[in-house]
Amino acid sequence: MARAKDEQQEHLENELLSFIYVEFIAPIKVNGIKPTIRQYEEITSIGRTTIEKLIKSQGYDVPISTFSKICQYANISLLEFFSKFEEYQKEIRRIEKD
């Protein structure tokens, strides 16, 4: 039973990482080009190692400080962030059913 919970947790973490990448990392462009890790760091104030983990989109348990930096960069509240994540999850579920 504990293993199923671990898989559920891992799935949730991976969905969260995918959401962060799709909504907050991938849209960033510098002169129309995908930025370097260093440029991401300068733009978002998120450390390079963390940016690399967010881009990898697997197996990273995102700390609250990173959520805070994402929200600060995107000029949204944590409530807005998690509301958007919930909508993202609903859309993923809808697509999976089709």
Results as ranks from 00 to 15, higher is better:
M1P: 11
R3T: 06
R3V: 13
K5F: 03
K5E: 05
D6Y: 09
Q9H: 01
E10F: 04
E10L: 12
H11D: 05
E13A: 02
N14G: 01
L16I: 14
V22C: 01
P27T: 09
P27Q: 04
P27K: 13
P27H: 08
V30A: 00
N31V: 00
I33P: 06
I37N: 00
R38E: 05
R38V: 04
Q39H: 00
E41L: 01
E41D: 11
I46L: 06
G47H: 09
K53P: 02
I55Y: 01
K56S: 07
Q58C: 03
G59M: 03
Y60F: 15
Y60G: 07
I64V: 15
T66R: 12
T66C: 09
T66H: 11
F67I: 12
S68K: 15
K69F: 00
K69H: 04
Q72Y: 01
Y73H: 15
A74K: 15
A74V: 12
N75E: 15
I76A: 01
S77D: 03
L78K: 12
E80D: 12
S83Y: 10
K84F: 04
E87R: 14
Q89D: 02
Q89T: 13
K90V: 10
I92T: 09
R94W: 07
E96S: 14
D98L: 11
D98S: 06
